[in-house]
Amino acid sequence: MNKLEIDWTRCDGHGLCAGLVPDDILLDEWGFPVLRGREITAGELSDARRAVLACPALALRLNNR
């Protein structure tokens, strides 16, 4: 069970994540991420990890509960 999560107290709406995993993250009209909330499949895992590492605010997390 891998899911993307956002720490909203950290997110500043840089928007890099939406460029890296466009199928899972969209940006709202203020530039903040909107998660599609679905599970990240094994094939998408490397892109999701890249997005987590790219977040300048360390706000994006991959939760594997």
């Binding site: 909203w8 107290t9 997110c11 500043d12 709406g13 709202d28 203020w30 530039g31 903040f32």
Partner: peptide, 9 residues
Amino acid sequence: GQCGPCVFG
């Protein structure tokens, strides 16, 4: 004032 969607929304 911590979370963007709350502040702007």
